[in-house]
């Protein structure tokens, strides 16, 4: 693999890792979500310094090119992430629903009540 390619890939992987760690440190990203990202960062970093690993994986899964291996795992990772988000959003939506309903129940206005000052 070309040295320039290696430098680019390694830089990407390491900066991704640094950004993730910084986000978690500032509590802008919860560890709950960070693990997948950290895994992605480490994978990019490891593969960029160890090209033979990528070649080995490519052979292992029977892909023709190393680039298709990268794309395959890249897309699969994004899919998995989207799925995780969908699951989370479904749960959040249910929680928001229950909260809104509870609020409505607590603030029920009966006829004769004072109209609320809006």
């Amino acid at each position: 693999m070309d040295v320039r390619q290696k430098i680019l890939a390694a830089t990407c992987g390491i900066s991704l890792l640094l950004v993730i760690i910084e986000l978690v440190r500032r509590r802008k990203l919860r560890v709950e979500y960070a693990w997948l990202w950290i895994l992605a960062g480490i994978t990019i970093a490891v593969i960029s310094v160890n090209y033979q690993l990528l070649v080995w994986i490519t052979k292992l899964i029977g892909a023709g090119f190393t680039s298709s291996t990268l794309f395959f795992f890249g897309i699969f990772f994004v899919l998995a992430l989207c799925l995780q988000f969908s699951v989370k959003i479904s749960r959040l939506e249910n929680q928001v629903k229950n909260l809104a309903q509870q609020l409505a129940l607590r603030n029920a206005r009966k006829p004769g009540d004072e109209p609320p000052a809006e």
Partner: peptide, 17 residues
């Protein structure tokens, strides 16, 4: 009696409330 949902959540949510 009026139950007010804080934002539009759809027919089913209103029913369930």
């Amino acid at each position: 009696t009026v139950l007010t949902l804080p934002f539009n959540l759809g027919y089913g949510v209103a029913l369930q409330a």
